[in-house]
Design a protein around this nucleic acid. Structure first.
Lengths: 300, 300
DNA sequence: AAAATGTTTTTTCACGATAAAAGACATTAC
DNA sequence: GTAATGTCTTTTATCGTGAAAAAACATTTT
């Protein structure tokens, strides 16, 4: 099978949404930049749009002929990259229980189960290993270390160390730095969300990530910035998995963020430290409370 | 070609060294544990040893017939894993200059140049990416970020954060913890090395790594422990590359380690902090002084 | 019956091959 | 002459395949 054309399909779908708004499309290179794909892919998209009667295409003129209909879109599941498919399958198995620490991971079995080649699974596992949840035995299998309380504590320890430092660096940034504008924008989005929290509470996780990434970037340290990928991954699946009290939790978190933003704007190190600690503490509580464990605490 | 039998060759060589000392070999499972390979590999080794007249092998009896000769050994270069070969080639190119930041890395070209398949190169790059020196453009090439001053500063910033914390945790460990015995042993090795520094200064880097890993382990945090891999990699190549003042540097470092060890044994947090800081500061200096750069400091 | 040896099966590692996607070069349009 | 389009080349992503190595199972030995 070699390679799926999900890049094309995904870009095609995104291009369809562009069609709505304009009566003619820009140049091929411009479209490529817009959709973040090469011109080769842009041309495939245009070809298909011409074939299905969406546009009339003649050299520079690309006139929109009709509104895109639902059936013009490629099915969502065909737009995912293999890496995404593998990650989802893997995380489902990991979180769906039966994933005891110490269990061994079989590349071949995983590949067969997901219906992909072993190479892709291997590459996924290597990439995934930096999250600290699996470990390779040289010349042999991978070992699952498990989504345990210990993992959550180790993760949050680093997170707290990094974020306190980043927040301090952020507050020390000169007044004319572009980040203050970004922060203002995020603050506005937080206020907006807070006022409509009853209906939009599930949009928090995306805002949360953007907010923390902005702060971490102030560290100007690639290791700190990259570590946020680990946190983001864990929280992403954590949110999907643990829906209990979601609205309540997010409402609290939004308020903590607003206090944290206010502290940053005050540029007073002590206030920043306090607000940051307070928010991180409750984030840790949330994560910990969602991990069952306690097994060793209940002897038979 | 599919797969080299370097595991077998390496284990064979190590087994030859075992031969020297004993007149008969232990059981197959025991040998497997000793050499850290499977029994399948052990049996291949025994077969060859029998063929080349090194041992007489009949079921449980494996009698050594003669001393191994130099020609019995497989050439050293055939015992390296592909990953090691690729890493060395890659680092040579990276450090041998001409590796400007921003340069793009071509998987196919690298693979051809080293004489290996693309899969191995891809997997290497993915594994290597966690060191923060390269970055992937989605669906496209890798970008070299370069072994720059900024890299060194970001790396040491994290290192210092982690090591100060680990050292504090170490000092707080109960007196009956096994680490104190390990520390005593390392201290003895340091004293030994210090007394013979004139001739053995090049053995320091290995001792250095073992010492710092022991300390980092006290953090009981996988992210801290794993981060030492980044440091170890950088220092490994750094030592190979920058031989200037090596003896002098190592002599200083050994003394700093001894002071650091004394501080740990005192279990006084303030002393530990001071000794740790002092050593880390000079480690940073050493690393920084070996990085040319200064390019932006000399405008045309 | 425990632990070794002997045999078979399964898994990992690495390759070459091929379609998708990117990129480079040549040509045309404004 | 700049910026687009048209065409061709190179690189990346993924698979199936086969040998090396591990692991599982069966048989012997002490």
């Amino acid at each position: 099978m070699s390679k799926s054309n999900n890049v094309y399909k995904d870009a095609f779908n995104r291009c369809l949404r562009l069609l709505d708004e304009s009566k003619s499309l820009p140049s091929e290179p411009e479209l490529g930049t817009l959709l973040r794909v090469s011109r080769t892919t842009v041309r495939s998209i245009l070809s298909r749009m011409e074939e299905t009667g969406l546009i009339a295409w003649n050299k520079r003129s690309k006139t929109v002929l009709r509104e895109p209909r639902p059936e013009d879109f490629f099915p969502e599941e065909e737009t995912d990259s293999l890496a995404e498919i593998i990650e989802r399958s893997f995380m489902r198995r990991l979180l769906a229980g039966g994933a005891e620490a110490g269990m061994q991971i079989n590349e071949l079995e995983l590949a067969r189960e997901i219906g992909v080649g072993t190479t892709s699974v291997r590459e996924f596992l290597i990439r995934f290993s930096r999250f600290g949840l699996i470990e390779k035995r040289r010349n042999s299998h991978w070992v699952l270390k498990g989504f345990t309380r210990a993992f959550a504590l180790e993760l949050t320890e680093i997170r707290e160390m990094f974020e306190l430092r980043s927040a301090a660096a952020f507050a020390a940034l000169p007044q004319d730095s572009a980040v203050w504008v970004d922060l203002d924008r995020l603050e506005a989005e937080h206020r907006q969300l807070a006022s409509e929290i009853a209906t939009r509470f599930n949009e928090f996780s995306e805002l949360d990530e953007r907010f923390h990434r902005l702060i971490h970037r102030a560290s100007h340290n690639r290791f700190i910035v990259d570590f946020y990928d680990v946190i983001a991954m864990i929280f992403h699946y954590h949110y999907q998995w643990n829906k209990a009290e979601e609205r309540q939790r997010n409402e609290v978190a939004v308020q903590e963020h607003l206090a944290y933003i206010a502290a940053l704007k005050s540029r007073d190190p002590a206030k920043v430290d306090a607000a940051c600690r307070k928010h991180l503490k409750s984030a840790r509580q949330t994560l910990l409370s969602s991990i069952p464990e306690g097994r060793q605490a209940q002897p038979a």
